[in-house]
Amino acid sequence: MNAVQWGDAPTWGATLFAGGAAWFAYQTIKSQRQQITEQRQFIAEQAANLALERIELRAAAENRKWSQARQISMHHRESGGSTDGEGNITENDHWEVFVRNSSDSPVHEVDVRFGTAYLAAEVYSVPSTALSGNNLGELWARPIHLLGPGRIARFVSQSWPAATVHNNRPQLLFADDSGIQWSLDSYGKLEEIPAGDSL
């Protein structure tokens, strides 16, 4: 049996130690890479969840913003002025517009525009008796600065020839309880009026 060459033993020991250290370093780097990959996946999932939550919050805020405005309604009709010998209306000469606040909060600066330039000639509060009886209600100034929950107002245009009446359809303008300004046209199209534009 040959004697161990001790001169080579320290080299072997150093080689084994270096190999163990390299293996340990490799395992550490591999573990860190796996952790970084998992962290990136977690961050990506969290970012996606936050984006979805933001979308849902925006949708809920948008729905809340439109909620009151959608509860303000306008019913309109052309009304007559000319009658035949039997009292039947033969020509319509003005608009009557009924505005109802069906929301739980007041609306502000309520007004009706006819066509592009005409404003209501008369505005009345509408008590419940006015809907079925002859009570016209109390005469109000326009615009109505505050129309409370459940209240109805009636706007009456000036009198025109029949063709002019039809060409000057009503448009409702109001601000909700948050101060957002809205317009509602005679076809039921509700739009937010951009900030800075006047009612």
Results as ranks from 00 to 15, higher is better:
144 I>W: 01
125 S>Y: 05
116 T>A: 06
109 E>N: 12
111 D>Q: 10
137 G>T: 08
127 P>T: 12
147 L>H: 08
143 P>Y: 08
146 L>F: 01
104 D>T: 07
146 L>G: 03
114 F>C: 11
124 Y>R: 12
112 V>C: 07
110 V>Y: 05
133 G>N: 07
145 H>E: 15
137 G>S: 12
131 L>D: 13
104 D>G: 10
135 N>S: 13
146 L>D: 08
106 P>M: 04
141 A>L: 07
141 A>N: 13
134 N>C: 05
126 V>E: 12
106 P>Q: 04
105 S>W: 00
146 L>K: 00
129 T>A: 15
124 Y>P: 02
111 D>V: 02
141 A>E: 15
104 D>E: 12
148 G>E: 05
136 L>R: 10
113 R>L: 09
109 E>A: 07
122 E>G: 00
141 A>G: 11
134 N>Y: 01
129 T>G: 12
136 L>E: 14
123 V>H: 04
104 D>A: 14
116 T>D: 14
140 W>L: 15
124 Y>Q: 03
137 G>W: 04
125 S>T: 02
125 S>M: 06
107 V>T: 04
136 L>C: 00
119 L>I: 08
115 G>C: 05
149 P>Y: 00
118 Y>T: 10
143 P>A: 06
146 L>A: 12
138 E>I: 02
131 L>I: 11
111 D>H: 03
113 R>E: 08
133 G>T: 02
146 L>P: 00
113 R>G: 10
148 G>D: 07
135 N>Q: 06
128 S>R: 14
148 G>Q: 11
143 P>T: 02
139 L>V: 14
123 V>R: 08
146 L>Y: 03
111 D>L: 08
